[in-house]
Computed example of a mutant assay.
Amino acid sequence: MTPDQNTSGGLREQRKARTRRAIQDHALRLFLSKGYDATTVEEIATAAGVSHMTFFRYFPTKEAVVEDDDYDPLIAELVRDRPADESPLTALHAALRTGLDAVLTTDREAVYARTRLVVTNPALRARQWRNTATTQSLLAQALADRERQPVDLRLRVIAAAATAALITALTAWVDGDGADDLRTLVDEAFAALGTGR
């Protein structure tokens, strides 16, 4: 590949990322001002300055605008990078903390808005089960990769517990109108897992 081709591909990917982000940003703004159910794909596309078809190239459904993010792969990679002598639960907690530090620094308002939409909208909340199962599988695989072994029941249970702790912390964050620090809520949720109290 020539340098020109490499630069061209990089610029194209940057444009795609900007378009995707613009669609999500405008969708969240409209969802929060008009309501999720009252907002149409056409309105989102118009606000983002793209066509209806372009919207669907980036997001297969309206729900996907809220649900899709790059956080799970980030957390999975952070889990794989944790020290081998850490317990799986400690590795998950530390990876989540590191990921939250990075994400909340740049995207706190968007993360809160998306979480609030999922928690308060019955249709989105019902879909959360499928998304949670995908996250659990991804985290269990990251733990298995870290231990250089196949995914087993123990790792699935640990990933499921960690995912439940995270979802409970996110729900508490929304219940408190975002006033609490999400990282502190995650710490408290993982502490409850560790002590069982």
Rank of each mutant, 00 (worst) to 15 (best):
144 A>E: 06
40 T>M: 04
145 D>V: 11
137 S>M: 11
152 D>I: 08
45 A>I: 10
132 T>R: 11
39 T>H: 01
105 T>L: 13
39 T>F: 05
79 V>D: 00
107 D>M: 15
27 A>S: 06
104 L>Y: 05
145 D>Q: 07
133 A>C: 12
170 L>C: 11
144 A>P: 15
136 Q>Y: 07
196 G>H: 02
92 L>V: 09
97 R>T: 09
190 F>T: 05
171 T>S: 12
103 V>I: 15
32 L>W: 00
6 N>Q: 15
29 R>M: 12
92 L>T: 00
109 E>H: 07
187 D>Q: 07
193 L>V: 08
32 L>G: 06
49 G>F: 14
153 L>I: 06
101 D>N: 06
92 L>N: 00
48 A>M: 09
196 G>M: 08
140 A>F: 11
22 A>G: 05
28 L>Y: 04
182 L>C: 04
136 Q>W: 11
124 L>E: 11
184 T>E: 14
32 L>I: 09
160 A>D: 07
11 L>H: 09
133 A>I: 11
45 A>C: 09
122 P>G: 01
22 A>Y: 02
38 A>D: 07
152 D>W: 08
165 A>M: 05
80 R>M: 10
112 Y>Q: 01
83 P>R: 03
31 F>R: 00
148 R>G: 08
155 L>K: 00
169 A>Q: 00
100 L>T: 02
117 L>D: 03
105 T>D: 12
160 A>I: 04
52 H>G: 03
96 L>G: 06
126 A>Y: 00
70 D>T: 13
24 Q>P: 13
173 W>A: 03
20 R>W: 12
170 L>K: 05
11 L>E: 15
20 R>L: 12
190 F>Q: 02
101 D>E: 06
30 L>T: 05
166 L>G: 05
93 H>E: 12
119 V>Q: 03
108 R>P: 01
40 T>C: 01
86 E>I: 13
87 S>R: 10
87 S>I: 10
105 T>G: 14
168 T>Q: 04
160 A>Q: 02
172 A>V: 01
29 R>E: 15
48 A>F: 12
106 T>H: 14
127 R>A: 03
156 R>V: 06
27 A>W: 02
61 T>N: 03
84 A>P: 08
47 A>I: 02
140 A>T: 05
57 R>V: 05
81 D>L: 12
55 F>V: 06
167 I>D: 15
135 T>L: 08
111 V>N: 01
195 T>L: 14
118 V>L: 03
108 R>F: 01
7 T>R: 09
55 F>M: 14
102 A>M: 13
190 F>A: 06
116 R>P: 00
170 L>G: 03
39 T>I: 13
180 D>H: 06
97 R>S: 03
98 T>L: 03
137 S>E: 15
13 E>L: 11
141 Q>P: 08
130 R>G: 10
151 V>M: 08
56 F>K: 00
24 Q>E: 13
78 L>F: 08
10 G>Q: 13
66 V>W: 10
67 E>Y: 09
101 D>K: 07
130 R>H: 11
5 Q>S: 11
103 V>C: 04
46 T>G: 07
58 Y>P: 12
74 L>C: 14
95 A>Y: 01
85 D>S: 13
49 G>A: 04
135 T>P: 05
178 G>E: 07
10 G>C: 10
89 L>T: 11
163 T>Q: 09
87 S>L: 08
193 L>I: 10
107 D>T: 09
49 G>Q: 09
46 T>K: 14
5 Q>L: 15
75 I>G: 08
146 R>P: 07
28 L>K: 03
